[in-house]
Design a protein around this nucleic acid. Structure first.
Length: 856
RNA sequence: GGGCAAUUAGCUCAGUUGGUUAGAGCACUUCGUUUACACCGAAGGGGUCAAAGGUUCGAGUCCUUUAUUGCCCACCA
């Protein structure tokens, strides 16, 4: 392939013309699959499977970090695998779908369990279709052939297997304990799924025999099985251990015992508290300590049970008011504090008030399981980026309590348990396995299937090994995976649990590094929310500005673990960057000779040496930035290399005398460096480069070419030229000079006269023996031809400049006069200070002459 | 109650292990259409790095205290 003669690029980069085509090309070429011939180790990332219940949002777009890593490692020659998937997302999806049903005035109960499951299945399948399209639009280089869904048979099998193994090891038990119950979802939830909110409620001071007790929940009094006081509280000391008589709001009197427990705060309320083990987690604990009876008052539907007499069947909140009113009427209410503020738990998915109650559930015993996790984190087998999350994860793990893994929702993975209905006591109470096995053991009709599902995090906690086992990559060195990159908000819900299950099942951590990103906020750093109307839709943004613009906006200026602000304006800015890249390429390619074919570049001019030096530094810096997970830095380095160095100076300089090979080589290297972040525009341009028959996605990551070392002195000459040009431009702009004539005593500068003339828009550049006119204050001595009036006009400025330089010189002198500095600072730093001082002094000398001449 | 972050230019944010006269993008002012780009170019203005103290030859960076904001965890009869 040679350069096309009819070559022409559009004036502006139009992403819509390229993105879909390029993505399809990548996918069809097999570039997304780990290349078995790649020389380096496997590199693996498992995409956090998006929930199959909606569209992707900006949070998902943050996974661009994973694409950067994957593309970078692929280019470096690793067997790179980025495995995609989708999560059925148990209760969340159920709630989302119920909201849709509610719009039609229906609930899941109208459909029945089976029909509901079927409809949600179809719903998730269609969402998965949308989602995969959206992931493609974001340019993510995932291997679609390995896509997994959490309800795939092979995944479920692994989850069942884990459950069985945990049970065999005695780490799973069934227990009737107090749980966080959501009356809307009709399911129990884990502590972490409860979110607390402050609210103000009446605090009732109710009479209980000789006691007055403060409570916000008089409706639960039917389940009170004790009155508790602090053991040190002398007011009640003589009553502890006694049974007292109290009058019920239902009319009868009853006996209730008084216990002493440290949990009771003598300073709160009256220092005595009613104990309702069935409906309060602390009371439950007290009940255990004191062997109290557990008497349920509220059922799973959130209504009072028959024990509540005439209040039975009432929702708890209504019953509270009714009971309080009746107690008041009966003289059982001492008084009510209407301004009591406390925090109350709500289900984090549906927002319903959590009702603590006792229900039979499946529990995971974590005491043994968490030990290796803590050890692995402490050993650094799993590293966190940013590092501070190490301690956060450890603290959480150390305080972890047994985890309720069963859910009574309708959408999820069924717990594979069958209970015996048989009278035969020699048969086990339940088995873990398949229905066929149940039939074999208990006989037809003598068993009953468990209807509970697993907590969705129980299955997704096994995602890394479950997926890799299913795809056969587990044995091929893709486990442990390299990096887990996800939102900071699911550190506890997901990340810690993956480590726990990973270690249990495989004896190894599931990933070596955890990279956590923060929240994507709006342009004022505020959280995006539909109600605020400040939500940016990533797909809309890619349509409008191109995917690369969005990706750059999510990369540059964003640091791990911290919230990052993204606005349409920011995205627009990076669209402009892509266009700049496009136009640089357009210019270079269109200015190549007809018969051009690329060759290894040679460094001729000072500009060449300078450019090569900049390029080498960028290669090194971008590489270490990515290695250190400093993606923002990586992006910024390329941004500045392309715009500030290449476009503004080298390309401009090349208009005087082009070095085509170096232009092409530099462009090509910049495309390579930017490709992990902005894959589309870089690939689009790449395809137009002369003699190009491979795709950029599989091109080698650049390394510094040792055979082409730029000459430092030459590079410095260009740097000096730059500062003369800039100084001349400043004077010309401020004094509105056209075509100023520049004088210099520096022969290097004079050799590049044409270049200086063009860049500075100068009329001429003359080599002189002695400078005259307006001194520019540059290291390479340069003046602008000027008459007395102009010099006078600049006098103030020269004085200001002189003052600035003098104070700077004084600073440097003071530093060098400081014995401690000269003694303790690294030699290079001290030498640097000396050089700087010498240079500043030279400038001051010339300035002095100029100003002296002006006065004289 | 415990913990973590943030506080740097008008706005949004960078600033790797302490070492140039503290940066970027946007916004702002002035000029500009020179054969890549107005999604552009040139020049310019703008910061005592939240406050106070400390360590150090040297602090935006490390330590202590304080203030403000945000987040997480725990508890709340």
């Amino acid at each position: 392939m040679s350069k096309t003669t009819d070559f022409q690029l559009e004036k502006a980069y139009d992403p819509t013309q390229y993105e879909a085509k390029i993505y399809a090309g990548w996918e069809q070429s097999g570039a997304f699959k780990p290349n078995p011939k790649a020389p380096k180790d496997p590199f693996t990332i498992i995409l956090p499977p998006p929930n199959a219940n909606g569209n992707l949002h900006l949070g998902h777009a943050m996974y661009v970090v994973e694409d950067i890593l994957t593309r970078y490692r692929r280019m470096q020659g690793h067997k790179a695998l980025w495995l995609p998937g989708a999560d059925h997302a148990g209760i969340e999806t159920q709630v989302v779908y119920e909201r849709l049903l509610a719009k039609e005035g229906k609930s899941r109960f109208d459909l029945g369990r089976e029909e509901f499951y079927k409809q949600v299945w179809d719903y998730t399948q269609s969402n998965i279709g949308n989602m995969t399209d959206q992931i493609r639009k974001l340019g993510f280089s995932v291997d679609w052939s390995r896509f997994k869904f959490t309800l795939d048979e092979d995944i479920v099998e692994t989850v069942y297997d884990t459950f069985k193994r945990l049970h065999d090891d005695g780490l799973i038990y069934r227990g009737n304990r107090i749980v966080n119950w959501c009356p809307f979802c009709r399911s129990a939830f884990a502590d972490i799924e409860v979110k607390y909110r402050e609210q103000t409620d009446p605090l009732y001071y109710i009479k209980y025999g000789p006691f007055v007790l403060a409570t916000v929940r008089p409706e639960t009094k039917f389940g009170d099985t004790a009155i508790a006081v602090n053991p040190k509280d002398e007011r009640y000391a003589k009553l502890v251990g006694k049974e007292i008589d109290a009058e019920s709001v239902l009319g009868h009197t009853f006996k209730i015992k008084v216990i002493a427990d440290d949990h009771v705060d003598p300073a709160f309320g009256t220092g005595a508290v009613k104990v309702t083990p069935a409906h309060d987690p602390n009371d439950w604990e007290m009940g255990l300590r004191h062997g109290l009876e557990v008497v349920p008052v509220i059922g799973t539907d959130g209504r009072l049970l028959p024990i509540a007499g005439k209040y039975a069947g009432m929702p708890a909140d209504e019953a509270r008011i009714a009971v309080a009113a009746d107690m008041e009427a009966k003289g059982l209410m001492d008084h009510v504090d209407m301004n009591y503020t406390h925090s109350v738990g709500f289900h984090d998915r549906c927002g319903t008030l959590i009702e603590p109650l006792t229900v039979e559930q499946w529990w995971l015993r974590v005491d043994e399981l968490k030990k290796p996790v803590i050890k692995a984190i402490k050993n650094g087998d799993v590293k966190f980026v940013p590092e501070r999350f190490t301690k956060v994860a450890l603290d959480w793990m150390e305080n972890l309590r047994d985890w309720n893994i069963s859910r009574q929702n309708w959408w999820g993975i069924n717990i594979p348990v069958f209970y015996s209905l048989s009278d035969d006591k020699t048969k086990p109470e339940y088995i873990i396995g398949t229905e066929a096995e149940a039939k074999k053991i208990y006989g037809e009709g003598n068993y009953e299937a468990e209807t509970d599902n697993f907590d969705t995090w129980f299955s997704s906690g096994q995602w890394p090994f479950a997926t890799l086992m299913a795809t056969g990559d587990f044995e091929k060195g893709h486990y442990p995976t390299s990096v887990m990159e996800t939102g900071r908000d699911i550190l506890f819900l997901w990340v810690t649990r993956m480590i726990m299950f990973g270690l249990f099942r495989t004896g190894e951590v599931p990933f070596r590094t955890v990279y956590l990103h923060g929240l994507v906020t709006d342009e004022h750093g505020k959280k995006m929310s539909k109600s605020k109307g400040n939500v940016l839709n990533p797909l809309e943004m890619t349509d409008k500005y191109g995917t690369d613009a969005l990706r750059l906006a999510l990369t540059i200026g964003i640091t791990p673990g911290n919230d990052g602000s993204v606005s349409e304006r920011k995205i627009e800015g990076y669209r402009n960057f892509c266009n700049k890249l496009w136009n640089v390429a357009r210019f270079i390619l269109s200015s190549l000779p007809e018969d051009y074919s690329p060759a290894a570049p040679k460094l001729h001019s000072p500009a060449d040496h300078w450019m090569q030096a900049k390029l080498n530094a960028a290669i090194k810096d971008v590489t270490t930035a990515i290695e250190d997970y400093r993606f923002s830095d990586a992006g910024q380095i390329v941004y500045s290399l392309l715009w500030d160095d290449f476009a503004d100076w080298y390309v401009e300089a090349s208009k005087v005398s082009p070095n085509h090979d170096l232009l092409v080589h530099t462009l090509e290297t910049i495309l390579t460096l930017v490709h992990p972040i902005a894959p589309f525009v870089s690939e689009a341009i790449w395809s137009h480069l002369p003699d190009r028959d491979t795709a950029l996605i599989t091109t080698d990551w650049p390394v510094v070419d040792k055979t082409r070392t730029p000459d430092k002195a030459a590079a410095r000459h260009f740097e000096e030229l730059k500062s003369v040009v800039q100084a001349a431009r400043t004077v010309a702009a401020e004094e509105q000079l056209s075509k100023p004539v520049v004088l210099t005593t520096n022969s290097n500068l004079a050799e590049s006269a044409d270049l200086v003339k063009r860049l500075a828009r100068a009329g001429d550049l003359k080599l002189v023996k002695e400078g005259s006119g307006l001194y520019l204050g540059t290291t390479a001595p340069a003046w602008i031809e000027a008459d007395a009036a102009l010099i006078k006009a600049r006098k103030d400025r020269l004085h200001r400049y002189q003052a600035e330089k003098q104070s700077y010189a004084q600073n440097l002198e003071a530093k060098l006069a400081n014995a401690g500095y000269v003694k303790s600072a690294p030699a290079a730093v001290v030498q640097d200070t000396r050089d700087r001082l010498a240079e500043t002094q030279r400038l001051l000398e010339r300035l002095g002459e100029q100003l002296a001449a002006l006065e004289g």
